[in-house]
Design a protein around this nucleic acid. Structure first.
Lengths: 240, 240
DNA sequence: CGATCCTTTGAGAGGTCTCAATTCGCGTGG
DNA sequence: CCACGCGAATTGAGACCTCTCAAAGGATCG
């Protein structure tokens, strides 16, 4: 891997054929690839800021990005983590409605929104592909609303771990061990909890042998079934 | 208005040109209109149930529908209220991921998903139109996550009233008075609160003259500015 | 190897929930 | 048109879960 400097920007080669455009007729998308820009972003760096006018849709190629919204007094809600192959910035009409911040070192590709819109009107399947992505996000968002509005701290953490494990499997991981590059504060802000509560819930999970931490950010899942039970509110004898 | 019976179903006339298809090339959508079905649903009746396999996308023509998800032990999260002109069921791939229940007497139009998908691939603009709707929903969902995860009860209620007022204006209302056909329990389940807390927050809002209730379900907004402040966490001297 | 940020742990406060009873409002039927 | 009945809304008291504030203990990076 090349050692890219912070905010390193390069023209994207016209040869990309992975990610959200995969399988679509190649020739018609040349314009898009030629107009796309590849960018490397350092951890903790802001990619786009809530309220900014952004003219791009972003595809994460490498690393993890977190999206969050803020209340006027600084409380934070992480609305999602974006992994390689996923897009963000699709849902901005004019001004960006959330902040995107790199969790790890990240490589993103920027597609000009005007060009994407233009192509979506002409290339069969492109708008449908985007719709499918938006729809999937919507399903995730609704699940998250149930979590935020109606689940307890234990259920939230368990749900989070189960979902992250499933995501990891979908990306080719083994499901048994989990790399969570985000901080406890990020996890808390994603689940509507404080950092302290995240820690306090992790402790008994470790003590019961349900999970363990290889390192700070590597979680090993020993008892996936119990985790699912906890996520669904079956606390059968789980003391916290 | 015709007196329709519960679950009354009729072939949709091919002449509809309002709602989400407005402005799209007419001829190519004849198929869709001919295949669409109009249905009338009584209050409290289920339109589609979480887990059901539904082959349709629904457009609300009249009335209000609430969408909700349930935890295994019956806790409920209302993910949205759907008003005339809006769609739901777009985000189902195979099985429905939420329950849709009529709040008032409702008229919906069912579009077969296969037909819609088929047309989306050919009619320029249709997929984009759907994408735009999904995108708007996504923005709302993200705002709701901030509310559910990070706002207090007062902020939640204030935010809800402000948002409902804005919606009402967008639908042609005056913004000063508000018809809320849903119950307190529905509002609570939408905001991640209990019925009791909704009531307890409404009381001081009324006492401070910020809102009043003409009837149980008609809210009059007297001080919109303060409501916005409360929604944003500026509780400047607001005792609760 | 030091500095800094992140995480963990503790004690206490507070906001929201639970459970229960009462009141209210609306639709129904006389 | 009015009385009735039932679900919905309100109100109250107490419990509980999560937060806040504070400090100590780790981990990671230069």
């Amino acid at each position: 891997m090349l050692a890219l400097k912070t905010q390193d920007v390069t023209r994207s080669s016209g040869a990309r054929r992975t990610g959200f455009t995969e399988g679509l007729p190649g020739g018609s998308l040349e314009d898009l690839f030629l107009a796309s820009v590849r960018k490397s972003v350092a951890p903790r760096e802001i990619v786009v800021c809530e309220g900014d006018s952004s003219e791009s849709v972003f595809e994460v190629v490498e690393g993890v990005v977190k999206l969050y919204k803020l209340t006027p007094d600084g409380r934070r809600q992480v609305t999602g983590f974006v992994y390689p192959g996923q897009l963000f910035g699709l849902s901005l009409q004019g001004a960006c409605i959330y902040t995107a911040e790199a969790v790890t070192r990240v490589t993103v590709v920027l597609y000009p929104r005007t060009k994407l819109d233009h192509l979506a009107a002409r290339v069969p399947g492109l708008a449908q592909r985007l719709l499918s992505l938006a729809t999937r996000e919507l399903i995730t968002a609704q699940e998250q609303m149930l979590l935020l509005g109606r689940k307890t701290a234990v259920e939230k953490i368990a749900s989070f771990l189960v979902a992250q494990a499933a995501d990891a499997v979908a990306r080719g991981g083994d499901g048994g061990s989990l790399y969570l590059p985000m901080t406890r504060a990020d996890i808390g802000d994603y689940l509507g909890l404080t950092t302290e509560t995240v820690s306090r819930v992790f402790k008994p999970l470790k003590e019961h042998g349900i999970v363990s931490l290889r390192q700070q950010k590597y979680v090993v899942i020993h008892d996936h079934a119990t985790l699912i039970d906890l996520a669904n509110g079956n606390l059968h004898g789980f003391e916290y």
